[in-house]
Amino acid sequence: MNCAELDNQLMHYLDDEVEAYQRLAIDEHVAECQRCAALLASERLFLDTLQAANSGVENMAPPALKKALAVRLDRADDGTRRMQFLKVSAMAATLAAVTVASHQGWKTFKRNQYVEDVVAHHVRRFPMEIERPTNRQIEAWFGGKLDHRVSVPQFPNRVAAGARLLNVREKQAAYIRYDDEKGDGAQPGHMGLFVYGDKPGDVDVGTLPHPEVGSSNGFNVVSWRDGDVVYQLVTDLDEHDIQELLPPSPGNAAGPAPTSAPVTRPNRLEVQPASMQQSR
């Protein structure tokens, strides 16, 4: 190493940016060269001066800055916690919504299973166990066969053609077939009513005057609940005709009676014991 080479490498040497062999070469040269030894000492002093200047107390962070930082970090933590809370809340809300939605979906699914089952039984036209009974006879016949009392509803222009026991899924049900008052039972307009106990609430339907109307295989199924007893009426009537069977909605209550309805037609389903129903 000569002096010119040292001049070129001195900056890197002082900055500790040289390889070990370069450092050794410079050390050896400086040990023998007064000019370069003085230069090295001078430049080291210069860098030490800068370092010393920087380490003065005036360059220390003021206590107020430390306090301000602590406050801002606390605020940032609060913000993060709030965000985490909001995220968790949003997740919980979503989960709740999904739960509610899936609960609703499950209830609809269950109800549809019963709707499909009553239609499947109705179309089979099983033989009746009692034929052409009066409503009182039907109620008497079912007495003791089921866990619940069977009240036979009265429908306009329909008569009970027969009744028998059937199973709707796992529930034992009373089945009452209605025919058109003037028909022979083969004409459109016949209906089948299923009445069964549902204490667990498997069939999610409203009470009158707000029945559920579903459909399966081309039949409409009007379902309602009276306490623990579910009624499901299977019919090929269209929705308009079904409306005439059902009690008027509160919005229609004050309006004129449907002009198509015969004057003598009762405007309510009479789901009460036959002995208490109005005579026709």
């Binding site: 000019r35 003085a38 000492a41 002093l45 210069f46 001066t49 010393a52 200047a53 920087n54």
Partner: peptide
Amino acid sequence: AANPEAHVLNRLTSAVVL
């Protein structure tokens, strides 16, 4: 550097250097 007597870097105050 060749004349250390005249070289008074180390006598500069921090304030001046900064």
